[in-house]
Nucleic acid binder design. Sequence first.
DNA 1: GCTTATTTAGACAGGTCGGTCTAGCGTCAT
DNA 2: ATGACGCTAGACCGACCTGTCTAAATAAGC
Lengths: 201, 201
Amino acid sequence: MTRPELRRRTAKQRLLQAADDLFYTEGIHTVGIDRVIAHAGVAKGSLYYSFTGKDELVHEYLTHRHGKWAERVTAGIEAHTDPRARILAVYDVLGSLFAQPDYRGCAFMNATAEAAPDSVEAHAATTFRAWVHTLFLDLATHTDAGDPNQLAETLVLLYDGAVATAQMDKTPEAARTARRTAELILDNVGISHIEAVGRAL
Amino acid sequence: MTRPELRRRTAKQRLLQAADDLFYTEGIHTVGIDRVIAHAGVAKGSLYYSFTGKDELVHEYLTHRHGKWAERVTAGIEAHTDPRARILAVYDVLGSLFAQPDYRGCAFMNATAEAAPDSVEAHAATTFRAWVHTLFLDLATHTDAGDPNQLAETLVLLYDGAVATAQMDKTPEAARTARRTAELILDNVGISHIEAVGRAL
DNA sequence: GCTTATTTAGACAGGTCGGTCTAGCGTCAT
DNA sequence: ATGACGCTAGACCGACCTGTCTAAATAAGC
């Protein structure tokens, strides 16, 4: 049994890392396998020994992105117990993501933009979106808001807006704008207008 | 002098139309010039007679997209005089855009996703984003909102969110969600909390 | 030590890419 | 009627793409 944590990383791992770097920063179609194997410092044969082809490499790249992001978001959520705080935590995690110097938008939005309807990218994006929706729907149902579905839809829209704006304008502050708007919504639909008025006065 | 409105459309026009169709629905990198000339029903030489190369075709494709969209949005805005209604009109125009069966997201977001940092696509996207920001900043300044900049940022985020959500989930209703949220913001920051309370009671 | 798994370097094939070039064909204005 | 202009058809180029294959070196497991 090899000990992967002690030995030099395996060819498959290095390929996956290289794919993650290059596909994310330059786009999937733009980067050829020659670029990937060069960046991984690996022979071409190793790619086709570890994967069936580029499609599988792309699929695993997106799957890993999904997994790592889901971990990060749930970690941010689980640091809080208050339903409202748990919702807002998502936008704080977004803020930490946007602050990364290599941020180049959502991997799944970018993949969708250059993907054919039935491609590996499209399918990965679909499952990712399903995760996003159940995430916010779960968070929204644990709130005293009127309609959890409508609240979740709005929170998803704020999530997408923050992601898109931060990418297009290179403004990490978009996360704070989304959070502020989310707070405003939670204040106004979570509690009735009359109650909000009472607190304001 | 030929009369372009009477005669069969010129090769350049047909190329531009074909580029618009294909680049938007399938992506810029994905579609080769052979596809474009075939869809336009035009000889390859005509492409390089009318344009310096693919880059110029891409540039004109994005420029025309920008122009047509700007026309459509300003037309929607100018149908109203009330500052608040003018803002909300933008999201209604978005709604009509999303309702188009061939909607596949914002051409500039998609172009950015597959573009290199200094490419024609990136530059076109930059000028497009500048337009979006001045649009909402102009609309926001004609409001009694506290900080026009902050309001504009939020409206841009809602705009981007609607566009991204509608594309990823194929849900045209995202425009209504964005509009509803914009209304809520205008009700709460446009007028002071105390005034809002007075009306609510 | 022997076998099996992993990895290497590089040649190679078939395809597509953007782009160039030539030769020629109508149309139009002068 | 003579050019200039707009356009066509298609051969052609070099570069790059994904993927295959060979032959040999290296490592790991038993």
